[in-house]
Design a protein around this nucleic acid. Sequence first.
DNA 1: TATTTGTCCTAGATGAACTAGTACAATATA
DNA 2: TATATTGTACTAGTTCATCTAGGACAAATA
Lengths: 134, 134
Amino acid sequence: MLFTVDPSRSEAVYAQVMHEIRQRIARGLLNAGDRLPTVRDLAQTLVVNPNTVGKAYQLLESEGVISTRRGVGTFVADVSPKLSLSARRERVNELLDRLLTEAYHMGFNQDSLMDTIEKRMKSFQTSGSRRRGQ
Amino acid sequence: MLFTVDPSRSEAVYAQVMHEIRQRIARGLLNAGDRLPTVRDLAQTLVVNPNTVGKAYQLLESEGVISTRRGVGTFVADVSPKLSLSARRERVNELLDRLLTEAYHMGFNQDSLMDTIEKRMKSFQTSGSRRRGQ
DNA sequence: TATTTGTCCTAGATGAACTAGTACAATATA
DNA sequence: TATATTGTACTAGTTCATCTAGGACAAATA
């Protein structure tokens, strides 16, 4: 499990760690029950302070994405959104609006964007890791 | 033309202004040649410093989204992406990965996300403001 | 009991964001 | 030409998030 962060990016290091973990779960590279590196190990790998990794883990736990057990370790949680349905929809819609806006300015029309989305969706998740629910 | 920002959000004020303008252009609410408020006017409306609005305008100009003329005002530019095609694709793909990740954690499967995207696309742009290019 | 692991705390450094105030440069207009 | 408008530039200072360093504690395991 190879992790990296880019300190030259404007995004905070702890946020990069969060996004990386969220994405690996979404892609099926990490599954419920899988163990994550210890805060100290990951901090050494990334050459950052253990507190920074701890912050990422704590926030992810508050979102219900992972679960930590003191003295034991940190593990990928079962998927069970903590937010209300409307709040979840709003979050997706906000990101979606961002995407539509950015795509427009990057010269994509709706058809070419749709193509891009369909292709990316297919390759995004590893086979056999799709969700059923809505 | 009503602008607002939410200072309680974590996103910087100047970045909120940028996103708002970008989105209005993408939706067809602002068109090439349209005039934006002066930095002083918009600053007063938003109850922020004129420098903050100026920063947003400068960054948008460096992206080629708007064009400023000292002593005259600030105007929506013609759409002509400054980045290379591969850079533009990368930017869209990064945002797209974010969306796919977030949607997963918000309990959307690929089908329900696709529905959401299609619906939002249709209502996003005002009629008669679609792009032709790719 | 000793080790591992997440958590907490204090203290300090750095940089981004923002405000305030002033001044200047370019353009348009009376 | 003079005046007003508008974007830009500059300095100085405040606030806040991020990150580091170092140490200590709490819970679980071996």
